[in-house]
């Protein structure tokens, strides 16, 4: 591994920390800074990062479904061409009442990202008036990229499988039959074959 020179990252991190006291700033590696913010601080932070810290490139805007905590994590990945550093600005929003504000006024292309997240996760971006149909067509039911959307069920409900493959056997099951072995109920989920 190269020795990592992270002076500029330290500078940026300190500056962010001094401006946003509640932010959790963490230098992940060289050229990567992670900033965790309260969700109401995201718009001022992005505006500050863009206009004062030269992070003028919105490289990516993503959402991660942490269903266990009932939260969505929004991740803005912004890049400064001048400093050559990427900031991952993260915040968590409520999953039930999935709502956030648009950042279209900062980056014109944020509109597209917001359209996607609206469609796939059902997040409503206030201020974005173009949250119309984007990738999906006539979609009903829960947004498909939420973790609780069952793709296998969707596929079996909507498509038929080709005939002629019903004779497939599970190897582990077949071996237990040869053995006359009984796998107790509590152990069954540990059969790796359940990967499917």
């Amino acid at each position: 591994m190269k020795t990592q020179n992270i002076n500029i990252e330290k500078e940026i991190a300190t500056e962010i920390q001094n401006t946003f006291h509640t932010a959790e700033v963490n230098i992940k590696r060289n050229k990567r800074i992670e900033v965790k913010l309260r969700n109401d601080l995201i718009p001022p932070f992005l505006s500050y990062a863009k206009n004062y810290l030269t992070f003028n490139h919105l490289a990516h805007f993503s959402c991660v479904d942490w269903i266990e905590q009932n939260e969505f994590e929004l991740v803005y990945i912004i890049y400064s061409y001048e400093k050559g550093v990427i900031v991952l600005a993260k915040t968590r929003i409520d999953r039930e009442k999935a709502e956030f504000v648009t950042t279209r006024h900062l980056w014109y292309q944020a509109e597209t990202y917001e359209r996607e997240l609206h469609e796939m996760f059902g997040i409503n971006f206030k201020g974005n008036d173009r949250l119309n149909e984007f990738i999906l067509e006539d979609w009903e039911g829960i947004p498909p990229y939420r973790r609780d959307f069952d793709t296998v069920k969707y596929a079996t409900d909507n498509f038929y499988t080709r005939p002629g493959r019903e004779d497939a056997k599970d190897v582990r099951e077949n071996v237990t039959k040869i053995n006359k072995e009984e796998i107790p109920e509590f152990a069954k989920e540990y059969s790796v074959r359940s990967l499917k």
């Binding site: 990516h60 959402c63 292309q109 597209t112």
Partner: peptide, 14 residues
């Protein structure tokens, strides 16, 4: 989660 950022995402839409 794996989220892909293709250049066409910007070039092809906005």
């Amino acid at each position: 989660r794996v989220h892909v950022r293709g250049p066409a995402y910007v070039h092809g839409v906005s």
